[in-house]
Design a binder for these strands. Sequence first.
RNA 1: GGCUCGGUAGCUCAGCUGGUUAGAGCGUGGGAUUCAUAACCCCAAGGUCGGGAGUUCAAGUCUCCCCCGAGCCA
Length: 523
Amino acid sequence: MLYTLTTPLYYVNDRPHLGSTYTTLACDAIARFQRLNGQEVILITGCDEHGLKIMRTAEAAGLTPQAHCDAISERYRDLWQRWQISNDRFIRTSDPRHHQVVEQFFARVEASGDVVEGRQQGWYCVACEEFKDDPHESDDPECPIHRRPLEWRDEVNLFFRLSRYQKQIEELVAREGFIAPASRRREVENFVAGGLKDFSISRVDLPWGIPVPGHSGHTFYVWFDALLGYLSALLEPGAPVDLDALVQRGWPAQLHVIGKDILRFHAVFWPAMLLSAGLELPRTVFGHGFLTREGQKMGKSLGNVLDPELLLERCGRDAVRWYLLRDIPFGDDGDFQQQRFSDLVNNDLANTIGNLLNRTSSMARKWFDGAVPPSGEAALTSHSLALAAATAAERFQVAMATLDFRTASETVLQLAIGANGYLNENAPWKRMKTAGEEGRVGEDLYAVLETSRWVALLLAPLLPDLSSRLLDQLAQEPIDSTGDPHSTPTPWQLALHWGGLNPGLLLPEPMPVMQRLELDGPL
RNA sequence: GGCUCGGUAGCUCAGCUGGUUAGAGCGUGGGAUUCAUAACCCCAAGGUCGGGAGUUCAAGUCUCCCCCGAGCCA
């Protein structure tokens, strides 16, 4: 079975920010984890490019909308590449084939009798691309979110008859596991319980959009078109556009990962649209929280925006991934604190995990001819570290499967802490001074080296780079979490087998696998 | 205004269906050690679990009221 998961299709209004990077990193970790376990994964990301806001942004920059979208979407594509995101697709809603998908989808919705004309009158926020119900002062109303003036609109639009799906959506939304984390479910339930209203799916006089077939002058409302990008991303290159074929190509998605602000679109409007078109519904919609910085909202006006490009350059992939995945409960809001960021990276990655391997490897090399020592008793699965490793791997699997990156990370870390403790307890450097203890020293070192190998393996989906550097220091092949599916047990699963490290294997000269972060001045 | 979600050690958070002296990591202080990226290991201090009332043999954990923060809807 295919495991399809999606990031949002990011709106090309502006360059990528940390929020979208966070979402994308998390999805990448999930995708890698699933692949390691043998799933054939399709990780979809991309850009949402239509709408009035884009048109105006482009105008302000003196560009055509297309040129503007080309430029921004390229930045996204490039950024994800530099973060080594293992996305399988990158869809742009200005793609001509996406237009065809939208047309076909609309035809189905229309055939279901779910498209009606209606008059839409009210105050409109261009930034939200939404009508605002009843602003307080009608003289000079502004958007409460964007603090920008609303524009009066009075137009005849096409409406999607969402109200017909009241019952089905109620059931869907109440379903265990559809909306995650569960703490967000009630809000959506209440919204649905309030009665679903038909919503407009077209705009008039908006040239930067996909024309609605059979309704000249109308283009599709951005959201209607954007959500369909998830389908377009699954099209087979070159083959004719056929919605029915998508079932073979990975639809329905197992998981939509989104920011909590767009939960409603994904958990209410989107499923109703799919029902209308006779397509299957996604299994889970996960709304994660937002990031603040040192307790404050990030924003241009405050000038405290954390730039993902800068973060990548100055701190590297592993550091940022670790901090975001390990320290922020996925789903909750999180606060980026620089001190904590460098504390965690230095303590966990450089000191605990990196140094563990470093100290052990150098002892092994010094006293066992530069190689992995004979395993002896340490090869037994009843060895205390073997047991710890097995338990950690089990917990890790459960945590990752439930998107609990925090617990998963902590589990790996605890394994490394345990191994460090084991070394201090058994003090091979002391034992080595008494004759006849070499055997025991070798066993202890073996057990710790083997544990390090497990640490490296478990880190593969979370920190693929550090994982390979650790494995490299252990003279092991890196684990590929980007490629084609493997039948189970997969190479990764097979590698997670106590005793997999071969005694006698020559160890490379120890080098720090993780540089400590020395950040002077704010990022 | 209605609703939702939070309010647990200096910080970030765990605490399942109520039950021994409330936990972890970071930070702080002390000790031990030298294999190692001044790293690792051990120990300690620090909490009237937002406030109040109630249910119970027993409440951080249930009920009600209030306060604070974030958000959704008006």
